[in-house]
């Protein structure tokens, strides 16, 4: 490891990152509010009624971006975890830790909205559709990660153990997804297809894009706010945190 690399990571040490995270968080929060407000307005009032699914389809403007985010956040967490293991940087593990609840929330929203969509479409709250099932397993993976973190008292052991779990999860996700797909086609044929490629109107596409960007901004805002509390909690004995406390009070 060259010393230049180490210096670079030193720069993103918790102490220097803490004030930066606040700025990023506030900026992202503003962007998120604007984008999600615009997105929701467009989903409800601008996007045209679907010729096949009526008004009920509008929930996909929340459902689809939430599903994307839930998968994407897991990947980001795994990337942070890998970085933490390789370079032994504390901040990486904190970032993964800060992202987890948001990812789990999106997975849950995806399932919940999927269920809300399923009821009027198929007359049932739950279908063992390949995508829904995979999403459910993803939620389990998030919960497992958070449970493992919570069970380990020593933060450094927690960082490394949960990083290994994330990497194992990331290797497994494609296999799980593929096997669920296989299982699904075997058992159900193609009677029900979620997110079937309906001809998507341009407005719908733009709306979905705006919502996705809004969720992105929201995730960043929340993760940054959360990483600040994680940093404070973990570094509470460090001198820079103590000085912060004195200045603040």
């Amino acid at each position: 490891m060259s010393s230049r690399l180490i210096n670079w990571f030193k720069f993103s040490s918790p102490a220097t990152f803490y004030p930066l995270a606040r700025k990023i968080s506030v900026a992202s929060a503003v962007i998120a509010v604007v984008l999600i407000a615009v997105g929701l307005y467009m989903s409800f009032f601008v996007a045209p009624t679907d010729y096949k699914q009526g008004e009920g389809y509008r929930i996909i403007f929340v459902h689809v971006p939430a599903s994307w985010m839930s998968m994407f956040i897991y990947l980001v967490m795994a990337a942070w975890a890998a970085m933490g293991l390789v370079f032994n940087t504390r901040l990486s593990a904190m970032m993964a830790q800060a992202l987890a609840p948001t990812g789990a929330m999106f997975a849950f929203i995806s399932l919940w909205t999927g269920s809300f969509w399923g009821k009027p479409m198929w007359g049932t709250w739950w279908v063992w559709d390949a995508r829904i099932t995979s999403e459910l397993i993803l939620l389990f993976l998030y919960l497992g990660y958070m449970a493992l973190r919570a069970a380990i008292d020593d933060p450094r052991r927690g960082d490394r153990a949960s990083a290994i779990l994330l990497l194992v999860g990331v290797v497994n996700i494609p296999i799980i997804y593929y096997s669920v797909q296989w299982w699904n086609t075997l058992h159900q044929g193609s009677t029900i297809k979620m997110n079937a490629e309906t001809t998507m109107d341009e407005t719908m596409l733009i709306t979905m894009l705006i919502m996705t960007l809004g969720f992105w901004a929201y995730s960043i805002a929340v993760a940054m706010a959360r990483v600040r509390t994680v940093i404070l909690e973990r570094e509470r004995t460090a001198s820079w945190v103590r000085e912060l406390g004195l200045a603040g009070s």
Binding site: I137, L141, L148, A151, A161, L165, I176, Y178
Partner: peptide, 26 residues
């Protein structure tokens, strides 16, 4: 991963069962 943790058994189930799914399916 759960070695020596309190509630290790239940936690083990939570971590491992989702990863078992492909084996179960095939």
């Amino acid at each position: 991963l759960t070695l020596g943790l309190r509630s290790g058994g239940v936690l083990l189930a939570l971590l491992v069962l989702p990863l078992y799914i492909p084996v179960l399916i095939f």
